[in-house]
């Protein structure tokens, strides 16, 4: 427990952990937005979430190799993955929308393996990165450092989150998406083309993940097998925040990022993920208990 001593004696490192956690959590939150959307609207749990992140990263890697500024590739990754999401919906996902949840998990799991292996064939197994050319901000006399690209990622996560919220609330298509989520059959009767709504939703999810992937390529590293990390984190965030609660996703993303940083600092990197899952179990148990109490009360 020497590491706790360090945090108590030099509290400034708490600040570092908080900031890092918050900024890392924002990128996880981006992947989680889309997952919540697809889950809520289509009742599909998309296991290929992380693969969209990975592919978005490759868009950035290759465009920046071709001379484009990496930051400008974020919208390109967004659009490219939107198209891919649309195609995948038309090819695969539309078959599983009304089916059992288990079937959609299997189908998207298959997709994730396919995308992984394709990426391995096309781009190779090497580790790739893109250089944003941004610098680092020093705080607290140089002890606390924040890479500017992480701030960009954080800002992008917030902006995209709010844009998504406004889109769902105000636009015609957004309203159609919400209507379909509430009751697909009623929406169909009222003249909403639910198939198109589903396609848009799935494509939008892929697009958001693509943007997240662009940021990942500039902040960390990209390789064909990184998907699972993001799928698992997104899944956790959605479970904790619930569906249709974008603000909740931002908060639980930040919470996840911060607790991961503290676990890594205090317990060591090998327990970072283990701690996270233990936390998930605790949250689920607590939630189950409180729901039980509520149900009793309602009776």
């Amino acid at each position: 427990m020497d590491n706790i001593q360090v945090l108590l004696q030099a509290p400034v490192f708490n600040l570092q952990l908080l900031i890092d956690g918050l900024l890392i959590g924002a990128i996880f939150a981006l992947a989680a937005y889309g997952m919540a959307l697809v889950w809520g609207v289509m009742n599909v749990i998309n296991i290929a979430q992380g693969e969209f992140v990975m592919l978005g990263g490759y868009v950035t890697v290759y465009l920046s190799l071709a001379g484009m500024h990496p930051l400008l590739t974020i919208p390109v990754a967004f659009v490219a993955l939107f198209v891919l999401g649309w195609v995948l919906y038309r090819g695969v996902i539309f078959r599983v929308v009304d089916k059992d949840l288990f079937i959609s998990i299997l189908a998207t799991f298959g997709l994730s393996i396919l995308l992984q292996q394709l990426a391995n064939e096309l781009f190779g197994a090497d580790v790739r990165t893109a250089e944003s050319g941004l610098d680092t901000v020093f705080l607290a006399g140089g002890t606390v450092t924040v890479a500017q690209i992480k701030l960009v990622a954080f800002a992008a996560a917030i902006v995209l989150g709010f844009a998504l919220m406004l889109f769902l609330k105000n636009s015609r298509l957004g309203q159609a998406i919400r209507a379909t989520a509430q009751n697909a059959r009623a929406a169909r009767i009222l003249g909403i083309d639910t198939d198109r709504v589903y396609a848009t939703t799935y494509a939008l999810n892929a697009a958001i993940c693509g943007a997240a992937g662009a940021l990942v390529a500039m902040t960390w590293i990209i390789h064909p097998y990184l998907g699972l990390t993001y799928t698992v984190r997104a899944f956790m965030i959605v479970i904790v925040a619930g569906l249709g609660n974008l603000l909740g996703i931002i908060f639980s993303g930040a919470g996840l990022g911060i607790s991961e940083q503290y676990a890594g600092f205090v317990l060591g990197a090998e327990f970072q993920t283990a701690f996270l899952f233990s936390l998930l179990v605790v949250i689920l148990v607590v939630r189950n208990l409180s729901l039980k109490r509520k149900r009793k009360y309602l009776k």
């Binding site: 890092d20 890392i24 991961e260 990197a269």
Partner: peptide
Amino acid sequence: NDMSATLTK
């Protein structure tokens, strides 16, 4: 995918 906690240490 990230070793910032270790590096903060």
